[in-house]
Design a protein around this nucleic acid. Structure first.
Lengths: 204, 204
DNA sequence: CTGGGAACAGACAGACCGGTCTGACTGGCA
DNA sequence: TGCCAGTCAGACCGGTCTGTCTGTTCCCAG
């Protein structure tokens, strides 16, 4: 623990000699992010992760301790990235009402990405054993999203902010499911239109 | 094929001696239905299925040929059951508009069941390898549901039946996701309310 | 120059996977 | 009575899984 102050600091610089200037932990997370997302956390084995990361197995276990913990870190990283990406998409937008709609525009961008494979949290939850650390990571993500929508609905002046936020969340999740399972990146469009109708009705 | 006319006929009667009067195939499907749905198709191994079914491994492979085919049959069975259950729920309802809402009432019943674990098709798709027979089974289910909603939207007189059906499908999927991941069987309620608003807006 | 810590490759253990096969038993039919 | 299809239990196969461990290389600090 105490050795990390200097050891971890110069490791980032030293690693510039190797294939990338990323730390082993970062390379592992990047590899896990690609493989777990595209093929599922259960399907992908440890060996494939360390191979893609270019890292020894012992290094993975010294950094994360277990596969479960690696999965948790992968979801946590995805949560942070999604939060920042969403908030930065909402930033330039003026009103709360427009921000609520902008959430679906950000979602639309995700669907358009070449290897979109559904919501990482829905997929992970489908594979999670009950009580696994996956579930708490999923809860954190969903709690944040719901709170964001509720706050915006309240600012927009909705009669029942919790209800509107829940309904928009349904559309949000439904769009993710449709984009993947119906093989169409257009699913954000009907979701956004429906959101517009619900918001209008809620502001009466 | 030809041997099934008499052989399969008396098997049902003969099996009355054993633990149940169900055929080995039926017992296997019932066991697969419970285990695959509750724990995921990849997590559950063949051994656990045959153990619960009280059937020998060779019997499974003579009946289904492979685990993939067992999974496909499990999804097909679920599709048929869901279709019949949904249609029978819609049957007593009069107008097309009310039928569209009744779809969410049927969904609400599913959420209330003690071991609801999300949409079986969403879960299976999350675990499916690309190109596996799971995907075609999933496509069949989604195609049917979309067609049902589209037909009802058309009968109800929606300006754009395909769009309304898609939006209701988003709410339908979103409710399933929310019921599972937010641990609340109430998710059908906001979905139904949102559907009502969208339908009203679409009939203007 | 030398010692220590981190990362390396890879063997290994123990469990489990899907799938095949053998051999015994049973119940209905000729 | 004898036959036979279907089921049974379970050994077995090759492969893969997570996780541990050994021994080596390498870089940096002192």
């Amino acid at each position: 623990m105490a050795a990390e102050t200097s050891a971890a600091a110069n490791r980032a610089a030293r690693q510039a000699t190797e294939h990338a200037r990323l730390s082993a932990r970062e390379r592992l997370l990047a590899a896990a992010n690609e493989l777990f997302y595209e093929e599922g956390v259960n399907t992908v084995g440890i060996d494939r992760v360390i191979e893609r990361a270019g890292v020894a197995k012992a290094t993975l276990y010294s950094a994360f301790g277990s596969k479960d913990e690696l999965i948790r870190a992968y979801l946590e990283q995805r949560f942070q990235a999604r939060r920042e990406h969403t908030l930065s998409g909402l930033n330039p937008v003026e009103t709360a009402r427009e921000k609520l709609l902008a959430v679906f525009d950000v979602l639309s961008e995700s669907f358009a990405k070449p290897h979109y494979h559904g919501c990482a949290f829905v997929n992970a939850a489908a594979e999670a054993r009950p009580g696994s650390p996956i579930e708490t990571a999923v809860d954190g993500y969903r709690g944040w999203m719901r709170e964001l929508l509720t706050q915006l609905a309240r600012e927009a002046g909705a009669a029942d902010p919790e209800l509107l936020a829940w309904q928009l969340h349904l559309l949000y999740d439904g769009a993710s499911v449709s984009a993947r399972m119906d093989h169409t990146p257009q699913a954000a469009s009907p979701a956004r239109a429906a959101a517009e109708a619900l918001i209008s009705a809620a502001l009466d």
